[in-house]
Structures are given as structure tokens and as C-alpha cells.
Amino acid sequence: MNFSCLSRTAAGAAFTVAAVLAAGPSSADMGHGSSKGVGHAGEAAKATRTVEIVMHDNFYEPEKVDVKAGETVRFTVRNNGELVHEFNIGTADMHRGHQKEMMMMVEHGVLEPDRINHEAAKAMQADMGHGMHNDPNSVLLEPGKSGEVVWTFPEDAVLEFACNVPGHYEAGMQGQIMIKH
């Protein structure tokens, strides 16, 4: 459980969001870095390379990333858009589960179009016993902010990187991860 350093952000203002409510087991597993076939949090020192991801409204550049089986990759993520975006590595099912959590955050006023409302997040935490905490497979960024995700990929999996801010995934803010042998 040494991944607390992994989704630290350059600006210190990026957050990942997970397990706001008990979502699917896969998502909860993700939150604790277990592999379950999707990979696990990696150590920055072991990263073989850095992939730069730029977030726009509402798409990524690039929209496709090739990785090697078992490779540890450091993703540096910058939000060049005007809205809050997320970079989250998972399966399509995990993203679907996570989208429900994100919707709840919008409804609680935690997630505004262009900012993360930390006061509302605290209130939500107090109300529901759940809030936001760092999660190694994702980073949630306000406009202009940067963050980082280090991930060790499994041997084989069908993975996507995605923004689960409500509507963004469906609008196409999603990219393919191809695991090559």
C-alpha cells in the first residue's frame, strides 16, 4: 500500500475520486490497488517511460495509448480545457460504475463545471461518510491544472482511459489502451 505518492499532482490541487459510495466491487478493488486483471498502482521509479496526456473540452490528446504487457507507465496529465476533467484507467464496466459516483458528486455540489468545491466535498463527507480521496488509477483536474498517474499494466486486459464527469464519457472523452506483447 505504498501508492500514496503515486497520484500526487504537480499543482497539488488535483484529486482523484473513488468509492464515494460503495460502487461495483471492481471499482472498490481499484481503489485499493489490487490487480484483478486491470493492473495496479506503479512506482514512479520503475516507470519505463512517460506518456503525456492533454485534456481538452471534451477529449484527450492522444486518444489511443499503446503499452507493453506488464509495463509501468507514468502518465503526466494536463487539463487545457475550461471544464473539470478526469483521467481514469479501467474497464468500460468500471467506468460505468464510477460515472454514477461522479453524478452523485455533481448532485451534491462537489463537482461544478469548472471547479471542485472542497467545502461541498467536506459536507458530503460529513453527511454520507464518503467523500473524495486519492485513488491511484485516476486523477481529477480543474482547468489549467496538471497531475500524474503511474500504472503497472497487466499481461492482458481490455482497458480504456476515460473521463467520468457526467456526460463526458458518452460524448466521447475516452481513449483506448492497447496492450502489446
Binding site: 471534451n58 471544464l83 457526467p166 456526460g167 463526458h168 458518452e170 460524448a171
Partner: peptide, 17 residues
């Protein structure tokens, strides 16, 4: 099918499903 609304009256809106 879910419908993700991306424009209203020709103008982009924040996508809403």
C-alpha cells in the same frame, strides 16, 4: 439507448445524458 445531448439550438452544451 441513452441520449447524450451535446448541442441545443446549434450551440454546444455540456454533455448531458
Amino acid at each position: 439507448l441513452k441520449l447524450t445531448v451535446v448541442q441545443a439550438d446549434g450551440n454546444n452544451v455540456q454533455p448531458v445524458t
